[in-house]
Nucleic acid binder design. Sequence first.
DNA 1: TTGTATGCGTTATCAA
DNA 2: TTGATAACGCATACAA
Lengths: 341, 341
Amino acid sequence: MATMQDVARQAGVSIATVSFVLNGTKAVTEPTRKRVEAAMAELGYRRNPAGSALARGRTDIIALLYPALQRQLHATATRFFTSAAERAQERGFSLVMWPAANEAHEIDELTRSGLIDGVLLMEVQLEDERVEALRKGTTPFALIGRTQDPTGLPYVDIDFEQTVVSGIEELVARGHTNIAFLYDHSGPSTLHAYGAIARASRTFRDTIAQSGLSGVTVDCGETPRAGREVGEMFREKHPDVTAVLIMNELASPGFMTGLRQAGTLVPDELSVLSLVSSDTVASMCDPELAFMRAPAEELGRLGTDAVIDRITKPDSALPHRLVPCQMVPGSSVGPTSAVGD
Amino acid sequence: MATMQDVARQAGVSIATVSFVLNGTKAVTEPTRKRVEAAMAELGYRRNPAGSALARGRTDIIALLYPALQRQLHATATRFFTSAAERAQERGFSLVMWPAANEAHEIDELTRSGLIDGVLLMEVQLEDERVEALRKGTTPFALIGRTQDPTGLPYVDIDFEQTVVSGIEELVARGHTNIAFLYDHSGPSTLHAYGAIARASRTFRDTIAQSGLSGVTVDCGETPRAGREVGEMFREKHPDVTAVLIMNELASPGFMTGLRQAGTLVPDELSVLSLVSSDTVASMCDPELAFMRAPAEELGRLGTDAVIDRITKPDSALPHRLVPCQMVPGSSVGPTSAVGD
DNA sequence: TTGTATGCGTTATCAA
DNA sequence: TTGATAACGCATACAA
């Protein structure tokens, strides 16, 4: 563990010069820089993060604050973690996992710990006291998700509105005019829940109304089992519906199973399009689902970039970035066979 | 951001005394301790990690080193991350995510960075140059998984041997004597791959041989699609097999779909038991799978404990902990209907 | 262009 | 039992 002192001695310069070379802080003549660099290489010098942090007042560590109490963190969450950590690394930061219940005082704990320079907050709710806590504090942060009114807040989120509209268009293009929207009405628990559900369902209702379509919302808990029950009863309860938008990844395989057991043919009798889902889950279904892929990796990157930008360029514009899901075709969607075809 | 100086001044003592109180380093009389504690509370004092790290030569941060190139990190991985981070927090450490390709020099990078006190290495392979790199270095570490010969290495792993044996027993108890073992023969990519596959398949062969049963291994890639193809052909290719052990979580839903499409009834004609799986995936299948649950949370905790113990008690015994999967009943397993019943 | 010297916040040694 | 004080490794204002 060579120190700057060691490098300085080896190169025959002062410790300050080593610092200048290391950080590019000030100009250094070519020959001396060469000497310093040679010395660093020879000694295998690595800057000590603790010393650096102490002197600079920054640790170059950001925290990914995620809900520890969450019942189900699905595959999307993992993709998200991974890309966030990778991006942080690329930009010279480290990312620590910070499990937390959804309480404001934990935010204060974290921001006052002095360990981290910024916070990336997952699973933002429409009304979120943690966001208030962050807003009141001085620690840079960014949200994955949005509160009810995210004006003045730095965030990155899925464009649920756009995703729902695209989904509906996809179905309408195939002649569907009577569409169901399936999601958890009770209390969702997944990565994009809360705001996600609220925005998507509102968009569904609005779009249906504006375009003169028929629409209905269907409640379904976030488990395969709940999905199965709903699937079994679906035809019976909604005889006129020819297509379903399902925004409930965990329930989707069960829903498909339920449909099959009730003899409801997909896509012949009913088309199914899963919103905000993943290749993994979609391909586990029978038939394989057409779905709109959650941009998990992109959000991880963008979210990390957002926090780091807040830290390094506090005066830059607040990021307000929405990323829509992308359509992935599958065999669960087909033309309508409703009367009139 | 009050410092020790501030606290000391407020309490009318020296900075050293504050340190003693804070760390319990030395005895302090009751009244002065009270005064110091009062001052800390009043100022909302929090120890500065950078200063502390510099003075102590320790950061109280551990790295979770996971393979960035991994194709599929499934639900189990998320449960693992989460419990590891929580446990670290409980013990006063932070856990940073450290994406890394599977290369030894990245280990050196990390251990020389000075940022972390210890490493938790995921996805250990039977022959693993990263493990060699860790072994040669001085940074405390623990493995999730095992190399070929893990003697002398601190590790925590799933007890694959026990899990396979239990799985076989479960089937034998229902009269099955002709059992298939399905896994990815090519190049597995999941959390417990490599060693996992090697150990499990060997145990399968050995157990079958020793107990006079009939057994066959079946190759299947780690995707639902691959599972489906194998499922469709299964009855035809293995007419005498009455039960399947499947150690390939991602393929399992597809496998069930394939069986169904080929008209192979589960469990009437064929019993299916999934090894090293999760509630989420098992319940996505039709019928819902009986499975052996991967002890992800427990491994996360134990792994974190293992590293931290290596850091704080270097002379303690090396942890060699194996945790078996636990049986979770499901409707995919039934008594054999083979000739002779 | 390079060097000197101070401070960042804590810990721990040595005195008192 | 408590207090001065010297590290810890680095960054930087100020001098040279």
